[in-house]
Nucleic acid binder design. Structure first.
Lengths: 339, 339
DNA sequence: TTGTACGCGTTATCAC
DNA sequence: GTGATAACGCGTACAA
């Protein structure tokens, strides 16, 4: 697997390395004939430039690293497609690493990408990430980083967020207006800002209608189907059945539905369900799931644009921007008590 | 974002670069005290080795590239998790690139990873990939590559496959035994071997029961929900309604279900449905979908093991292995005509 | 035990 | 226009 190098081409043509380099890069003054000769023989010999060498010299790579917690749920893959749509046009490529919702993997992924000289990083934190000192250090040193959705208050850099508070409020209000009196919230892990915002929306909707919320109505849950299933099963075992559940995302809502159906409860008659982060299957499952839709593609595109902007800033002063995107509540039968 | 280099450390300690290098790599004879001094100051200065420089020198990177067609469907992400479980233990990291089911992107991804000096590649082809000359050239040059699931007959390298033929046969037989007389097959694109194998299983099951298959019963379809939806909608428009559908994967089966339900057809009474490549939502949708389960995690692990084996082979003779994994048919109500 | 010098593949800055 | 050379950061054979 010997790679053909610029040197090989130079030797073959009895030219200096620098001449070949110039021909290849179409630089400075170079005689047309020599350039075309070089180009042609390079082609024939199967030469392709070695980006590694170029990175070492230029200290940049035209590559962007993307670090996400998981890609089992459709959310992150969809965001990545948005990212790719933007950066590809500008000649950048993305390298994706997933952390498997594990903070150690995340740190290692970030270090790997950084030392591979990506020009910038787009990150969404693991549900377990508590210590962000390394990321903070990178940001403080001026390394271009954009965070989306799952962030941490300590990270002062450009961020793309969803209006979690507002839509959690609306989702909860919708359940209240359906006549639900005992709504439980399956919240995400506490170290994520989005979990806190969604919880706050849940609380404030109750406050608006002067309804009290007991601590037992808020259950810290994971983001996967089995998490929702497990928590719901626990409730069922202890005969503690709410009349509605507002889950922090669709998979945990779907898990709750699984457990409820298995135990003979009817949705929405016995328990109404609302999810978050509209998934492709929301309207396929039985019953179709009411959910808050996030603009996944737009999140990716926005994050990518902010990052490219930051990368190209060079010497100017970098002012972090936070962009909050809007969504929609797709109401389906999982939450409609009366028709 | 100035990186601390080995040179900086050397200068600070008034040592030669090579001494520092040796201390860091714990090589040869080096005085304990100097080594510890170097280690400590390197730590203090925040030194971390530059992998790019190391790649250039060593011509290898301890990184493995993974190129997949898409990750909207759960299949590929699950395979990647299997890959990661194996390679991480051996000190390798994976860089993931997705081709968006586009052959051009795929080629570019492969080239990027190769020239970034990944030590090997794990690839599953795009549904559109017809020209595999570049991959073939890499393989012929001895570059370690493992293909899984979506392959092409020209690629003579280690491959991890699913027994598509057998399980397509069983899935079809199941429908026949349910009394279906007019089964349609939504097949994958023709250039993928797996599509041909699944089709052949479909045909041979009919042959076993002496049932004829008309060309119109086989419809080339994509792998996404909207593909199945579109093809089913076409059939409905032309009043050409089968009594069963065997789809080449779950999403296209789900798409077909969507179109059928929207048009008032009952599943399985009017049309029975069987999917392929068990997805997480198969038993959540309405009605639960019968599907062939593939061992996604095992596919990933096996591919990773074959690749590591090939990478470490060094000078030995490489003998490509093809490993065919087994699955299961999960029968649910979408295909049960009588209970 | 430590320092010197070279090379990995490029590009850029000099001379000529 | 073209050639020689330094540099990017690291590892290592060789000299000291």
């Amino acid at each position: 697997m010997k790679h053909v190098t610029i040197k090989d081409v130079a030797k073959k043509l009895n030219l200096a390395i620098s001449t070949v380099s110039r021909a290849l890069n179409d630089k400075y003054d170079i005689r047309k004939e020599t350039r075309e000769l070089v180009l042609q023989t390079a082609q024939e010999m199967g030469y392709s430039p070695n980006p590694i060498a170029r990175h070492l010299l230029k200290q940049c790579s035209n590559q962007i690293g993307v670090v996400i917690p998981e890609f089992i749920n459709a959310f992150f893959p969809e965001v990545i497609i948005g990212i790719q749509e933007v950066v590809q046009k500008e000649g950048y490529q993305i390298l994706i690493m997933q952390s498997y919702e594990n903070a150690e993997n995340e740190l290692e992924n970030i270090k790997t990408l950084e030392s591979n000289m990506v020009d910038g990083l787009i990150v969404s934190l693991t549900k377990e990430t508590k210590d962000v000192t390394y990321l903070k250090k990178l940001i403080d040193n001026g390394f271009p980083i954009v965070i989306f959705n799952r962030t941490n208050e300590l990270l002062k850099t450009s961020t793309v967020l969803f209006d979690d508070y507002k839509w959690a409020f609306f989702a909860t209000e919708h359940l209240i207006l359906q006549g639900c009196k005992n709504i439980y919230h399956f919240m995400g892990t506490k170290n994520l800002t989005l979990s806190l915002n969604r919880k706050q929306g849940f609380l404030d909707a109750h406050k608006k209608y002067k309804m009290e919320v007991l601590p037992s109505q808020i259950i810290e849950c994971g983001f996967m189907i089995h998490d929702g299933e497990r928590e719901m099963e626990k409730l069922i075992q202890s005969k503690d059945i709410p009349d509605a559940i507002f889950a922090a995302n669709d998979p945990s809502a779907i898990g709750a539905m699984k457990a409820l159906k298995r135990n003979g409860y009817k949705i929405p008659e016995d328990v109404a369900i609302v999810g978050f982060t509209e998934s492709k299957v929301a309207d396929l499952i039985d019953p179709p799931l009411t959910s808050v839709a996030q603009p996944t593609n737009e999140i990716g595109q926005t994050a990518a644009r902010l990052l490219l902007q930051q990368i190209r800033l060079k010497e100017g002063v970098f002012v972090p921007q936070t962009i909050v995107l809007n969504g929609a509540l797709n109401i389906r039968s999982s939450s409609l008590k009366k028709i």
